[in-house]
C-alpha cells in the first residue's frame, strides 16, 4: 500500500487501515499462515490516481482499488495523461513524444567527433 504524500493528500492514509482490517494482517507484518504480507511503501508512481496498491507485479490505483485488492482482483491502473505546453517547445515535446530506437543523437555525435574524444583534455 502506498503511504506517500500524494496518496495521503487523496485519502489521508485511510486506505491502509481498510486493507489491514480486510486482510486481517497488520501493516508491516505477515499472516500466520505466511501467505499474505502487507507492506506500506513510499510511492508506486501512480500519484495521478491514488490511493495506489500493488499485488505481486500488478499496480492498481484509484476508485475501487482497495476492493479489488481485497478480492484478489487488481487490474492495471491507467497511464497518466501527457501533454506538451509552451510555444518554444516542438509540438511532440523533447521528452514526451515517440521513442526512437535509431538513436539519431548518438549517430550524429559519432559522425562529427573522434571516439572518446569530445571532452578529453
Amino acid at each position: 500500500m502506498c503511504t506517500g504524500t500524494a496518496c495521503w493528500a487523496a485519502e489521508r492514509g485511510a486506505a491502509l487501515g481498510t486493507v489491514a482490517a480486510g486482510l486481517g494482517v497488520a501493516p508491516a507484518s505477515i499472516s500466520d499462515d505466511g501467505a499474505t504480507s502487507l507492506a506500506p511503501t513510499v510511492c508506486l508512481g501512480l500519484c495521478h490516481v491514488g490511493p495506489a496498491v500493488r499485488d505481486g507485479d500488478v499496480l492498481d490505483a484509484g476508485p475501487g482499488a482497495v476492493d479489488r485488492l481485497l478480492a484478489g482482483a487488481c487490474t492495471r491502473a491507467p497511464a497518466p495523461a501527457t501533454a506538451v505546453h509552451g510555444a518554444a517547445i516542438p509540438p511532440d515535446g523533447v521528452l514526451l513524444g515517440a521513442d526512437d530506437p535509431a538513436w539519431p543523437g548518438l549517430r550524429h555525435a559519432l559522425a562529427i567527433s573522434a571516439p572518446n574524444g569530445c571532452a578529453r583534455p
Binding site: A9, H48, V49, P80, T82, H85, G86, A88, I89, V94
Partner: peptide, 27 residues
C-alpha cells in the same frame, strides 16, 4: 526551449487532487 529561463524543458507531474492530473512537458 525556455526563453529567458533555465535551458531545456521540464517534466512536471500532478497528483490525484487535480481535475486533469498528468505528466506535462513545459518550459
Amino acid at each position: 526551449l525556455s526563453p529567458g529561463a533555465t535551458p531545456g524543458t521540464k517534466l512536471v507531474c500532478l497528483n490525484q487532487r487535480f481535475v486533469t492530473p498528468g505528466l506535462y512537458e513545459v518550459s
